[in-house]
């Protein structure tokens, strides 16, 4: 067990896309461990350490709203690009209408979580690195609100405000709910083989508003 921190994060909207609904994006009910890791890495990360998410407290009730936007589908038929390229004199254009799609996203509203996490040292740490040093930097950043870049809830347009969570006891909207089964959720991506990055899933069960990840079974 490494050194642990508790971070409170909140924001107006969030979108933790379900991989099975990626085109018309639809959010999971709660933050995924992978998104939580991303938030912490936005605040502090170093090759010599690895964030491990222990618990996610769902402080606010789960509420959805929907937004439909014009988005770019960034891949275009190679043949049409070829045409545009081979015709050097005649400007061949593709109408942007062909390149734009309207997609709806089902997003979460008014979210607040407390992330409990710890970090473990990796073998890429420098000789001068130690857990105490990292811990000091992390605590300093959390107290001052410093970050590498602004953390976000799933997508960059949904910024996540963050601060150190000093509460001993965290109240959640689901304190009285004994057990809420959220089904299989993305745990994180497995980056161990960079040529084959694989998703890992786990069975998410929220107990009294807490997603406990300390000994969850990961399915590949």
């Amino acid at each position: 067990m490494g050194v642990g921190v508790k971070v409170k994060v909140w924001g107006d909207y969030a979108l933790f896309s379900r991989p099975e609904m990626k085109v018309e994006r639809c959010s999971y009910d709660v933050m995924t461990p992978s998104a939580a890791r991303g938030i912490l890495e936005a605040i502090y990360w170093h090759p010599g350490m690895r964030w491990v998410i222990d618990k996610i407290h769902v402080v606010n009730p789960i509420q959805f709203t929907s937004v439909r936007r014009n988005e770019v589908k960034s891949k275009i038929l190679a043949s049409s690009v070829l045409q545009a390229y081979n015709g050097s004199d005649k400007p061949l254009y593709i109408s942007s209408k062909a390149d734009i799609v309207q997609r709806a996203s089902l997003i979460l509203r008014d979210v607040e979580y407390v992330i409990e996490a710890h970090f473990e040292m990796t073998d890429r740490a420098n000789a001068s690195d130690n857990p105490g040093k990292f811990k000091d930097i992390i605590m300093r950043r959390l107290k001052r609100g410093e970050c590498f870049h602004m953390p976000y809830f799933g997508c960059r347009e949904f910024p996540a405000h963050f601060c150190l969570c000093g509460d001993e006891e965290i109240r959640t909207a689901y304190d009285t709910v004994e057990e809420k089964d959220l089904g299989f959720m993305l745990y994180d991506m497995d980056y161990s083989d960079l040529n084959h990055i694989e998703p890992m899933f786990f069975r998410a069960v929220m107990k009294r508003g807490i997603l406990d990840l300390t000994d969850c079974e990961v399915v590949r």
Binding site: S74, K75, I76, V81, L82, Y93, S95, S96, D99
Partner: peptide
């Protein structure tokens, strides 16, 4: 990069050309 009326891949191809790749066939 994200313009109205210009295919994205064309801009990508410009990057390739700068590295000495001037093929047009995908």
């Amino acid at each position: 990069y994200i313009k109205e009326d210009v295919p994205l891949n064309r801009s990508d191809r410009k990057a390739c050309e700068s590295l000495g790749i001037e093929e047009t066939d995908e």
